[in-house]
């Protein structure tokens, strides 16, 4: 059975000066899949997210969304002499979209260390994510010619808040929410951009087992309700093993394993990366 491909990351290398944070990473996300990205601290998971969402331009490699290239680069300029990664010379184009354009194309993300808009209310946080799809210009918006559009935006935002049980908190400052709710608000805000692919960066960080169970159910529900694909970084193994269809394992920037949860659990290289090995 062939599935519709959503995200294809090919041979991505991200090098900062002499440090190779991600080395030759290739991964694929198909429609409707929940994919896990795991690895010890400092393995380069978040860097991979930052490359996919356009925060960093990759040093080498290509990222495609629905077959359309959103980032492609090859070592050139100063980097050419310093380059330590692989696949040098395979890619020839230089094209890097900015994060806002990539979001517009359908990739939304949350952040490992929560990045909500501090001075804004819960509702406003979600509304910001809908701004890019607004049709009205500055004058139209300022002089309230787009009242119908604005009302529709608010209604959609409220619907999202209702889904995450944040309805009563809509006028609170985002930072006044308890930690767990802030994580939920980040997901709600990401969903407000109407993505096809959602990147979750440690959504269960700091949650107790009960909360992470709830989160697990919610991630599945989001996938079904919004008809999207999810790529998530997570350290809670029961969460990852519980909901992911396939898992990629990174260590020292390189992909060391790929497969179903059972395959990953029994993979000696993964166990070695996580637990170390006896000398």
């Amino acid at each position: 059975m062939s599935k519709e491909n959503v995200l294809r990351v090919s041979d991505i290398t991200m090098q900062f000066g002499g440090v190779v944070a991600v080395n030759d990473l290739s991964l694929e996300v198909n429609k409707g899949e929940i994919i896990g990205l795991i690895g010890p601290n400092g393995a380069g998971k978040t860097t991979a997210f930052n490359v996919i969402t356009g925060v960093y331009a990759p040093t080498n490699g290509r990222v495609e969304l629905h077959g359309e290239t959103i980032a492609e680069n090859h070592p050139h300029g100063k980097m050419k002499a310093m380059y330590k990664g692989q696949n040098d010379g395979k890619y020839t184009d230089v094209k890097v979209l900015t994060p806002d354009k990539i979001t517009k194309k359908g990739i939304a993300r949350t952040f490992q260390n929560i990045r909500l808009f501090k001075g804004m209310t819960v509702l406003e946080n979600v509304l910001v994510a809908m701004h890019m799809n607004m049709k009205a210009g500055v004058f139209g918006a300022a002089l309230r010619f787009n009242a119908a559009e604005e009302a529709k935006m608010r209604e959609e935002a409220m619907e999202l808040l209702r889904m995450f049980n944040l309805e009563e908190n809509k006028d609170d400052l985002a930072t006044s929410l308890p930690y767990g709710k802030q994580r939920h608000l980040e997901i709600a805000r990401a969903l407000a951009t109407k993505p096809q692919l959602l990147l979750l960066d440690e959504p269960a960080a700091g949650m107790n087992p009960q909360e992470s169970d709830e989160l697990m159910r919610m991630v599945g529900k989001i996938r079904d309700d919004f008809n999207l694909s999810i790529l998530m970084i997570e350290h809670h193994m029961q969460v990852i093993m519980g909901i992911c269809e396939r898992i990629y394992v990174l260590d020292y920037g390189a992909l060391i394993a790929e497969g179903t949860p059972e395959e990953i659990q029994n993979n000696p290289r993964v166990i070695e990366a996580y637990l170390g090995v006896d000398d």
């Binding site: 925060v55 354009k101 517009k104 910001v128 701004h131």
Partner: peptide, 19 residues
């Protein structure tokens, strides 16, 4: 709101599609 989001967190604002 887009202006305020830039004030509060540029990276997050950009990730939410604010140019």
């Amino acid at each position: 709101r887009a202006f305020k989001s830039i004030r509060d967190d540029e990276i997050a604002a950009e990730a939410m599609g604010v140019n």
